[in-house]
């Protein structure tokens, strides 16, 4: 995943832009595109097994949202079938589906984001604005494994001390609470030493200057511009009414949405936005390909390839060097 190697601000803005467009409109086409690329990205980030696993959890949710909306709403005109006195309309079903797809897409985008920015790395960009908070998140992640480890040790010694009899639910709960209590006291005691260490290293909130191991490179700037461009295009499309879509009483696309191909511009820009991570992957792959094919005698990157790529520049080549 090339996207991972970009500046955190770029990654954040990318996800923010996608989420903005996804959540700004209730439109079957946009919801569909967003969901499609969300699944694709999830697959690129965590692999096929985990993607299927999360879809396994999410798809029932989609079904539930769709059904509930169809049950609660009776505004649609196109009646599909009736059970008793209730009629179920295509419109209500469609609205539920779009709402559900939007929610699923949002959830998937969020989860891909936090997979990409593991351990709160996304807070690196908050470092300037909220230096203490971002430091504290980092500290929490430093303490979680230790806390688990100590919890295991306490569990071992308590079980050895009191026997591992947990047939009764009551003793089980009492045991869990005892464990957490010891854990709390122990962790706090250790934290006193951490506080000493912080003071020894001169921690003072006011003159701290957070350092993040990231730098702006040319390709970051280029891709940032591209993101901004595409999202502005999409937002203009939305503002001009390209995303107008009426669900009730009968679904139809108003003429103003199609006038001047507004919907197509919107959808096109959004497809480009959704596919951007893959474009970046392809760009990287082409560069790798070119550099591997290069022989000392015929040292040439195809000018055609170089010209085609949106974010060329020396930055990305420099990063390839060991």
């Amino acid at each position: 995943m090339t996207l991972k190697r970009y500046h955190p601000v770029v990654i954040f803005l990318y996800f923010a832009a996608v989420l903005l467009v996804t959540m700004l409109v209730q439109h079957p086409v946009i919801a569909g595109i967003s969901f499609f690329f969300a699944v694709l990205l999830k697959w690129r980030v965590v692999g096929v097994v985990k993607t299927l696993k999360s879809l396994w959890h999410l798809l029932p949710m989609l079904a539930i949202i769709t059904c509930i909306n169809a049950l609660v709403n009776d505004s649609g005109m196109t009646v599909l079938f009736t059970i008793g006195r209730r009629s179920f309309s295509l419109e209500a079903l469609l609205y539920g589906l779009v709402a559900g797809l939007t929610l699923l897409a949002v959830i998937l985008w969020f989860s891909s984001y936090s997979d990409l920015m593991e351990n709160g790395r996304f807070l690196a960009m908050l470092g300037r604005r909220l230096p203490v908070i971002s430091m504290m998140v980092s500290m929490i992640f430093r303490y979680i494994p230790d806390t688990l480890q100590h919890g295991r040790e306490i569990d071992m010694s308590q079980r050895a001390l009191l026997g591992s009899d947990d047939r009764h639910r009551k003793t089980k709960v009492a045991r869990a609470i005892r464990l957490v209590s010891i854990l709390m006291a122990w962790s706090m005691e250790n934290a006193i030493e951490t506080a000493d260490s912080m003071r020894a290293k001169g921690y003072q909130a006011q003159c701290r200057r957070p350092y993040a191991r990231v730098r702006w490179t040319l390709r970051d700037v280029m891709s940032l511009l591209l993101i901004v461009l595409l999202s502005v295009l999409a937002v203009i499309g939305v503002a001009m009414g390209g995303a107008a879509f009426l669900f009730y009483p009968e679904w139809f696309i108003p003429a103003r949405a199609l006038a001047g191909g507004r919907l197509y511009i919107l959808a096109g820009a959004f497809v480009a936005l959704g596919g951007l991570p893959f474009l970046l992957d392809v760009e990287q792959w082409l560069r790798d390909f070119a550099s591997h094919r290069r022989r000392p005698s015929s040292c040439k990157i195809s000018p055609f390839v170089a010209a085609m790529l949106p974010c060329c520049g020396s930055a990305s080549q420099r990063q390839q060097l060991p």
């Binding site: 351990n119 430091m135 980092s138 500290m139 992640f141 430093r142 230790d146 250790n190 934290a191 030493e193 951490t194 000493d196 260490s197 912080m198 020894a200 290293k201 921690y203």
Partner: peptide
């Protein structure tokens, strides 16, 4: 200043 316990002195996660 370096203290006795290796783990407790560490402040951050990476």
């Amino acid at each position: 200043f370096v203290m006795q316990n290796p783990a407790n002195q560490i402040v951050l996660d990476v």
